[in-house]
Design a protein around this nucleic acid. Structure first.
Lengths: 153, 153
DNA sequence: TACATTTGCATCGTGTGCGATTTAATCTTT
DNA sequence: AAAGATTAAATCGCACACGATGCAAATGTA
């Protein structure tokens, strides 16, 4: 105990609760995503596509903060499940356009109920809805700060 | 736009900024951890050991919310780097006790400066230190809520 | 037009995470 | 004490993440 620096304690760092909360939250989605036969990162890609219908790999990456080295294999899996189409653009052969299949479009209806179920799980007597919203806003603010820090390098 | 449910938008869910912030934060550690030749999860294990010196795999897992299927290979890598010892307990042959090696103990000094460097990166005109602390407290509160939800299943 | 540079995606290797199962040791119950 | 249940690690398979590199198409520049 004598040689323990305060700063080096797990609970005193921001990073660890962020890391742990992210993983546990992802786990909360599993029982809802398993019936749809998709993983959480795949769900995030679909969320983006349900909003924009058609996006390049680059675009999806910008939205989710992911590179092609993660996305390409993930998108191939979604293609194998016949949820999306991957078509190389005619006007720019470098870019691959990702779009929803009919099956992928339909999945949206089943997924529509998930966010509410998750949110209700978070809302407790210790953390009401308005507190949750203000927390989320702070989180997004933090996200932008980190984003700037990592980009400006 | 017409068929887009509000709830299904990326930014309106808590999960996504949590996931993104966690990954970007981890990335911020990389330049500091690379000189020490350790990864971020390995750093977390060492943080726990610097605090308690000697822990069972089970104990480390309880602290980091990780199971042996993740920890065992990770700990073997730390052992290969000669930062820790893994010794099966004499009193209970099922448990493996993890302790710091001299080299692992020494690494603490080099790591001691990391938390401050990270924290200063987070502190900006948009997010001062007290805001950061209250945000972290909310994050920890959320973590406990999720923890209860996932345990009681 | 030639040619260097940039861009978008893919590939590779390593290291997590995690559900599911296995194995061996310990505990419980009778 | 023997049988059954529980527990702690380990193992296995799969799916991310991500640094590094490769490659072909597009762009910039002389």
């Amino acid at each position: 105990m004598s040689t323990t620096c305060e700063q080096l304690q797990l609970n005193n760092q921001l990073c660890f609760p962020l890391y742990a909360a992210s993983r546990l939250t992802t786990k909360m989605y599993t029982p809802h995503l398993k019936p749809l036969d998709i993983t959480y990162p795949q769900y995030l890609v679909l969320l983006a596509l349900w909003q924009y219908e058609k996006m390049s790999v680059k675009n999806i990456g910008a939205r989710l903060f992911l590179e092609s080295n993660t996305l390409t294999p993930l998108l191939k899996r979604l293609e194998q499940k016949e949820l999306i189409h991957r078509i190389r653009s005619k006007t720019d052969e470098r870019t691959v356009m990702v779009s929803l299949s009919t099956k992928g479009e339909k999945l949206k209806e089943q997924a529509a109920e998930i966010p509410l179920k998750i949110q209700s799980a978070f809302t407790t007597e210790d953390f009401n809805e308005s507190e949750l919203i203000s927390f989320k806003n702070n989180l997004v603010k933090l996200l932008h700060i980190i984003q700037d820090k990592t980009n400006n390098k």
